[in-house]
Design a protein around this nucleic acid. Structure first.
Lengths: 160, 160
DNA sequence: TGAAAAAATTGTAATCAGTACAAAATACGG
DNA sequence: CCGTATTTTGTACTGATTACAATTTTTTCA
């Protein structure tokens, strides 16, 4: 997971950014919350609660699954993250709260960010109407195969 | 639930349409399946499996929850219905398999059909690309307040 | 600084939608 | 009408999420 590019300075910067974000959202800062937010800010594949727990548990042996679930729920309530119901069996967590769409890759299972279709980010940031309905939140997701998987499939074919 | 408009002829017509649809999708026709499909074709608020069970159980005492779940799963596998992951805690069933979007009303809880935004129904019926990703399925849903609720809220205000 | 109060964390037990499974019922071909 | 294949049914199970109560940590303020 760690690359040469990850220096102590980077780590500190991310920790500061995570702390900052919690404060901005009016959430009391604790070690566990910073840690979870940090994870979300550096892993853009939209993990579910258990992914977060599994990833952090080795370094934080005292961390409890319940804390992860509680934290995720509170982050969502304070608008610090959005919850995605894309996967039938899990709730995925998105740290990027600017309106955007998602592609759920059926090959690698990852969820990648893509631009909204048919609605500008600006429009999606406020309430608007479709027909005579009032729209307050925009959720768009697409199922298919992500660019990376398409390339891998092409490579595999070329090699044969 | 029953209105004066619902005559025996209508009921028979719907039953025939439900049977027809099952056949068209290559599904063996049984009493229970017709019954569930009929319910889906006449209740356009996108019920979940338990809604269906609760609605049908009184008239069909032998019906089992498992049958409803099995049937829904098989209908989806045969493309006779689409499954919606809008509600965090339930899978909702949509009998209309033409590509379209949904509005989830936060006031009445219903899910109503609305047109797709930014993508034509025709385009959404086939695979296409967004950026360099391959898209095979389009899911758009919007959270807000439906027209009917908006009108009810307006009426309530007028009366005061 | 140092207790008392408030907030957060933790582990265990419970919940609840959905599924696996095997027995009973039903349909169907000959 | 019989034997086989398909469905249905009820019960038991799974796995994600939540409730809860005890413990720990943080904050407050005298």
């Amino acid at each position: 997971m760690n690359t040469l590019a990850s220096t102590p300075t980077d780590t500190l910067a991310i920790e500061r950014a995570a702390t900052e974000k919690l404060r901005r959202c009016g959430i009391n800062v604790t070690r566990q919350r910073v840690c979870i937010m940090q994870y979300l800010m550096t892993h853009h594949v939209h993990p579910n609660a258990d992914d977060i727990y599994s990833a952090l548990a080795p370094q934080h042996p005292s961390l409890s699954r319940t804390t992860v679930y509680n934290t995720v729920r509170m982050l969502a309530a304070h608008g610090a993250v959005t919850l995605l119901s894309i996967d039938d069996h899990n709730i995925n967590i998105d740290e990027n709260t600017l309106p955007h769409a998602h592609l759920h890759c059926t090959r690698c299972g990852h969820i990648v960010d893509i631009p909204l279709q048919g609605i500008s980010t600006l429009q999606a940031s406020h309430a608007f109407t479709i027909g005579k309905h009032l729209v307050q939140e925009v959720h768009q997701y697409y199922k298919g195969v992500c660019q990376q998987c398409l390339e891998e499939m092409q490579d595999a074919q070329t090699l044969q």
